[in-house]
Amino acid sequence: MIKSAFAVYIQGIKTAIASRMAYRTDYFIGITVMLIWEMVVPMVVFLIYRSGVAFPNWNIYEVLLIQGIFMIAKGISYPCFFGIVWNTIVRVQEGTFDLLLIKPRSALFMALVTGFDAEDLGKLLGGGVLTGICLANLPPANLAQWLNMFIYFILGQGVMFSFAVIMAGTGIKWVGNFRLYEIFDSVTAFGIYPQSIFAKPIRIIISYIIPIAMIGAFPASILLGKPVPQLGWVSLGVAGFLTLSLFYWRRMLASYTSAGG
């Protein structure tokens, strides 16, 4: 079963890349635009530091490392599974969401398979470069730090997935609302700066309840040797968030299949 699901997913990626390659110029323009967009926040940080001020106890490379790792996290999750969001929104709007329901797989899996987005691989590239620049200007981390950061990073991907599922679920009900991405961008804005600048209640929320700090801030903090919450508690938070998101998706899907028209 898992083998067959994987085969379907690989086939989905193949078709998505083939589709994208039909418009190569457009593809590269798209990647460029996206990279410019992703560089806005690092540029703002740069301009703030340039004017002679700083986040207390964080130098500029340390701050940009968070944003670099965050961008890598997006560079992986956006192509691989975040496409379920636009895929669901577009399909519900056009009425082709029904086509996913006549396939002998779960609707979420079908949305995943048909939602691979090759364009977002550009984020991976941008994030890699930014992270590389920062690491070159920071003292090296040891192997244990790298391993630890890797665990947190994977959990962060779980948070991204949960977020995608919640947004896609909302897209089922809230027809044609592409502004949902703004919600994601605004909430994750808490995750791309040093956690110490936020008030305590906010920090608790973004560490354990909607654990977006797992995406970039904690992995970067580990590499920098700065303190992060214990793995046990944060993984509990991630598991809770994931369960909640899947439950929410089910509710929304049920309301789709029981609606009429």
Partner: peptide, 25 residues
């Protein structure tokens, strides 16, 4: 569905058949 296509616009039908082969195993 006459009004909802299961083909993929930019790639050949053969690829869409292949995707469905995988989906239906």
């Amino acid at each position: 569905f006459g009004q909802k296509s299961q083909l993929l616009w930019d790639i050949p039908p053969a690829d869409a058949f292949e995707l469905n082969r995988a989906i239906y195993n």
